[in-house]
Design a binder for these strands. Structure first.
Lengths: 241, 241
DNA sequence: ACCTTGACTGTTGTCGACAATCAACATATA
DNA sequence: TATATGTTGATTGTCGACAACAGTCAAGGT
């Protein structure tokens, strides 16, 4: 009767800590994850650490090299390029599904978020911009109300999230304003209930965002982060589906 | 110098065994996975079993109930319905990407597979039909050459595979022939390099296949497998992405 | 100088045991 | 009888220890 929120399991706590550390850039791509070290950091035994790492591996955030050593995954430019059409396709599907169901109130909510992005940008609060951007897309993903779609999008966002957060994307240029404009266009098409228009605009918006990001990311200047393509990428799962 | 293929790790072996057991229907939906029992079956300690189960959990094949007990996931009809537009969207994207790259030789390969499906169907070898069907789609997924897309599709197929395999889908009716016809149409549009046509036909093919499947699956007669919706579905991950 | 050999180290894989949790049942008390 | 309390069994969570394996380095032989 006293303690409401029980502490999450060790595995969950470690998973979340590592996930945040990776996506926030504290653990850089290519960085090794040594169970013994983590054991000291978290003051637990290796068992829950191993399980947490397995989960990160399933997320694609951690990869195992030929010697079974674990590393933070290093996204290549190609990985990111690959993600563009997939995410564009899934987000536009979400928008399409949402069009029929979305209420005026929810569109207003989106409008409010878009204004908040504007304000955060004016105030120079770029991490808030990032968070609000995710919030914007989460709204119609929720309206679309499709678990499989939600899962698919989350999987992609999770595995590349750190790139967004660790990047300079949300700073110092006119990228946010154009994103805000595109959001406004999307809202307009939601209001008109024009499914094809919604779909097209969301698809293009996602493509634009990712391509803009790609242009100004480190990829174009120095290629890749450390560890090039030396470490296996996800897709080495045991089964052959 | 003597042993070429080293034995996979315990975790991989257990993962594969359980994966196959679940998708083949040997472990029925709702069925509990008790570590102690599996320990006896596989003659290993609980550590690798726990890790394998974590992976299955990440795949969405195993869910954890409120009392932390592990169960084979029970897909609801809604889950399957949710998957239809997502898989249709992703497969048609794969087809679109493949259209530009696919060679005449590869189209011929697809044609060959389609004929093999026909033969297997005539011979009454339905499980071969299923396998060849997957092979057909794998071809242009491979041609599309997009790791992110491959990952997304595999994730969906993995989590619902058992339904296909455990079902009566590939038996006793005219569903296969119409699938073969649709494949032929897809091939034709690949040959014409008409991207929009390819995209549309693949999308419709996937939608048709899944809807036909849905119609004749157990869902329509007795609703759901045991355990209804009592057990949490995937999506209860610790983080809030 | 070059190659082998063997010991040492760092790291992961696996194990058996103990602790914690919860359901189910039994027992006690009003 | 009904409610509260204790006990037991089943199951999962966590731990510390050992085994296995690759990499490094130094000693020794050719």
């Amino acid at each position: 009767m006293t303690d409401f929120r029980k502490p999450k399991s060790m595995v969950d706590q470690i998973y979340i800590s590592l996930f945040n550390a990776i996506t926030a850039g504290a653990l850089e791509p290519g960085c090794r994850l040594v169970e013994q070290d983590l054991q000291k950091d978290f003051e637990v035994s290796r068992a829950p650490i191993r399980e947490a790492i397995r989960l990160l591996e399933a997320d694609g955030l951690v990869v195992v090299d030929a010697y079974k050593k674990k590393h933070v995954r290093n996204l290549t430019r190609e990985d990111l390029v690959d993600n563009i059409p997939v995410l564009a396709c899934l987000e536009s599907l979400a928008a399409r599904l949402a069009t029929a169901k979305i209420t005026t109130k929810q569109i207003d909510e989106l409008e409010g978020i878009n204004q908040e992005i504007q304000q955060a940008f004016s105030a120079g609060n770029f991490s808030k911009c990032a968070e609000l951007n995710f919030a914007f897309h989460r709204v119609f993903l929720k309206v679309a109300d499709n678990k499989a779609l939600h899962r698919a999008i989350r999987s992609i966002v999770k595995s590349t999230l750190w790139l967004w957060l660790a990047s300079q994307y949300y700073k110092n240029n006119a990228i946010i304003p154009s994103s805000i404009e595109e959001h406004a266009l999307i809202l307009e098409s939601f209001r008109s209930k024009d499914v094809r228009l919604v779909e097209t605009r969301v698809r293009e918006h996602i493509e634009n965002v990712l391509e803009r990001f790609l242009k100004q990311s480190k990829f174009d200047t120095e290629g890749i982060y450390q560890f090039g393509g030396a470490i296996g990428q996800p897709g080495n799962e045991p089964s052959e589906i």
